[in-house]
Nucleic acid binder design. Structure first.
Lengths: 147, 147
DNA sequence: CAACTCCGTTGCGAATCGCAACGCACGAGG
DNA sequence: CCTCGTGCGTTGCGATTCGCAACGGAGTTG
């Protein structure tokens, strides 16, 4: 996997090379949800333990998660999001929004997230594309390649 | 692939079940970039032709791309983003931003996107998480599960 | 009629995944 | 001491998926 995607001179491809493997984004979803330990992830997802170990290792290798020892005898570690990992929040929320909008079952979106300081009934997180310069909301047609 | 991810009662998992396979987001990147034909995708990416055919088929099956005939004799088709597909823009830009920020090579980000109506030198698209109710910029700590 | 284009499909070896079992270090109970 | 339970992975093996290269077929051009 690593070789062919990473050297495509494309930031999207490089990102996917790190977080595009099966289960990886779901592990990160759990991490954003506060989980830190191997057994928590393993119970939350129907993922094989060897695959979970491999995913955690590549995320740690890439600096998305940090592996920190929280006890000796026996040594046990927890996995925490780094700044780099936390910066994937727009991607995660984007997937969340899209699934809610188009793939929800008959009984509506499975999970409800709320901005807890906001009074509005619509206080849900939403991933949107804006212009870093003027702040305007952007569609694909507002953007072009410039280099 | 389909079975285990789709029935996880999680919008993120359901989204990944549709667009989480290897190469899929890169095909969509090209589609956002204006490509529509099989041969264009095949030339743009180092993807095996059988895999490309399979990815296009699942994207069409899920309504992310629409397959439209653009000539008879021989029948030829083009693949266009639907509204559902276009709504993946925040995810794509999120991956793009993250790769630019953390995975760029020595010579900076490989590709530069610009909001062409904006005069600012910082007129680049950015995927951010905001509150649908109040519009405020949100971090993971501002959000909690409410259902 | 031979060459070329566009769009896939097929066959086969290689890589990856899923599942279940095992390993190991430690603490608790009997 | 012996066994059980927990936390955290690793190993083995069959099943799935992928990558590559070759083939096919329908039409167009020289």
């Amino acid at each position: 996997m690593a070789k062919s995607l990473a050297d495509l001179r494309c930031s999207v491809a490089r990102s996917l090379d790190v977080i595009g493997e099966r289960w990886t984004m779901l592990v990160l979803r759990d991490a954003f949800n506060g989980m830190t330990r191997f057994e928590e992830f393993a119970e939350s997802l129907p993922i094989a333990r060897n695959i979970l170990a491999a995913r955690l290792k590549t995320l740690v290798d890439h600096g998305v998660l940090a592996r920190e020892q929280y006890q000796d005898r026996p040594p046990r570690y927890e996995y925490r999001l780094t700044r780099k990992g936390a910066d994937l929040y727009p991607v995660l929320i984007g997937l969340f929004n899209w699934g809610d909008a188009y793939l929800a079952g008959d009984d509506g979106p499975p999970l409800d997230l709320t901005h807890h300081k906001c009074e509005s009934p619509e206080a849900h997180p939403e991933s949107v594309v804006v212009c870093r310069g003027c702040g305007e909301h952007l569609t694909p047609r507002d953007v072009r390649r410039s280099a």
